[in-house]
Design a protein around this nucleic acid. Structure first.
Lengths: 300, 300
DNA sequence: TTCGGCCTGTTACAAATATAACAGAATTCT
DNA sequence: AGAATTCTGTTATATTTGTAACAGGCCGAA
């Protein structure tokens, strides 16, 4: 009997998919089996993930035919077959670039760099998939709205993100304040807060009590809150108008804020576009001032 | 509590996917349910297609919790839930174009989020490809070496990265100093610098004169420099023992530090592994101190 | 602090699902 | 053409799997 390997039909890691294995054995099969095989491949892998009886029915074969064929394919039983099918699906759904590709060439795939990068890319994928673009746009407009004061709040670790956003929004618009919830001085800032003021709050685990209290007080005064948090969500999210939760798990004792950094930078980019003429004007002024202070070298 | 339907999160035929439905109800859920929900979304839809008990196990919840939640989502039972999941999968596989080319599903591919994410992922790939893992390891060891003082230096924008690295290395080892080159006080710090001291310097465009001067003086005193810079390389790189250059171009008026953030986080992860016992010890001490100050909520 | 309600997990049962054994139909070889 | 072999479907059984009822535990209110 003829036996050929489908070129390109195998997975990157060299293990044949179930579809491949079925294809390869197709010629060896009997009528009923072939009928069944085609039915499986028809809408692969969904049909194989249902109950055995259902599959037998759509293929118009008897129940034991399915069971027998699955065993002929080398599985212990139908559940075993399904389990591998699910594994396959899991691998497929995951970003094809992220996996199966070593990032830093020459580094063993177990190297921290690779592991970390894989995790971060994965985080980005999951995070972005869950974000509602409309809500994102809305948040950007709130941040861009110069008629309302803008407050940016960060905690111990997330302070870094807050400061980064502050640094840039400060250039884009007036009336921006950076508050560190770790500082005792934060209540002072709340004195002037009124209805409609906009708060951008960063809070990732471990969630900070100070940040929550600050959020509560701001909320009580009628301020609107935009929250950047992690997948488990800071308690602040109950007070927030809009919240974005990023995945932050990485192979490390700590979490990763790289994903949130990406969101923040995207937001900066979006905000600068809301009123580009104004932005441009302010940036040019800043350039002039830098030139005068001679703080920076000319860009070569 | 605020409740919004994700616009654009629906499938082409206008029916919400199960993932969407879960996402929408996320706020209404209890602890165990949320835990389960995340587990389902983690590798969707594969995990939901297995037996109920398996899903419960990976999510670390009890079997009935799964059954109950599925009913709360509006399904007659778990098999019903699985059936719809399979239908969804079938539909997904049939139009393979739509997926994976837009990150935030439902957002037009020209949306800032997508453009930005594409750019960042691209940056990560290019950056990682150029990094020599051996040099990276070497740098990590230098940072981990407790026998030598460690100085971390950042400029106006890169200060954010410097501070983030500082925040974590401070936990990992003693004798770490954070210097802001934008501050006038930096020359004071150099008084104590001697041969073999380690400097981690961040400098991205526009390169700062202060940072360069600081690097020159440190170098003159025999310090070793590790540099994080961008693809065009800060002039500091001529003085640096090891330098890492990240791609930072994004569709924005500014550059993106997300790639460099990833490198920094990888470095932190690597450093903590150099002497894990010591790291663990210091972290536990820190935890104790946090507990005493009651600054943070217990993680739920 | 104590009470009530709600969430969560353990146990027990019912239903479904998969496998094994058997018997009839189709096919092939002599 | 007839017998042997292989394939296929029906029935029966064992196992898995999902669901319902119950009870402990946690949190918030009084």
């Amino acid at each position: 009997m003829l036996f050929f390997i489908q070129a390109g039909a195998c997975m990157t890691d060299g293990i044949l998919t179930i579809a491949d294995r079925i294809h390869n054995k197709l010629d060896d099969m009997t009528r009923a089996e072939r009928q069944l095989a085609h039915s499986i491949l028809e809408n692969y892998p969904a049909s194989g993930l249902g109950p055995l009886a259902a599959l037998a029915k759509v293929a118009n074969v008897s129940v034991p035919t399915v069971a027998r064929m699955v065993q002929k394919l080398g599985f212990k039983g139908y559940p075993d077959f399904q389990a591998e099918l699910r594994e396959e699906l899991k691998a497929t759904v995951q970003n094809p670039i992220a996996k199966h590709d070593t990032w830093a060439e020459g580094a063993p795939s177990g190297h921290v760099l690779n592991q970390f990068t894989d995790a971060v890319i994965d985080n980005i994928r999951h995070t972005l998939a869950q974000i509602d673009p409309d809500k994102f746009d809305e948040a950007c407009e709130m941040v861009a709205d110069q008629s309302k004061p803008l407050y940016i709040v960060g905690g111990r670790v997330s302070h870094t993100l807050a400061e980064y956003l502050f640094l840039h929004t400060q250039i884009l618009r007036p009336n921006v304040t950076h508050i560190q919830s770790t500082s005792n001085a934060w209540p002072h800032y709340l004195l002037d807060v009124g209805p409609g003021d906009v708060f951008v709050i960063f809070d990732v685990r471990r969630y900070e009590n100070n940040t929550l209290k600050l959020a509560e007080m701001a909320h009580a005064r009628g301020a609107k809150i935009i929250l950047f948090t992690d997948q488990w969500r800071s308690p602040v999210h109950q007070l927030a108008e809009i919240s974005f939760s990023g995945r932050i798990v990485v192979p490390s004792a700590w979490d990763s804020v790289a994903t949130l950094m990406l969101l923040v930078e995207s937001m900066i980019a979006a905000v600068q576009n809301v009123d580009w003429d104004d932005t441009k004007d302010r940036m040019e002024q800043l350039e002039d001032m830098f030139d005068q202070t001679k703080l920076f070298r000319k860009f070569t």
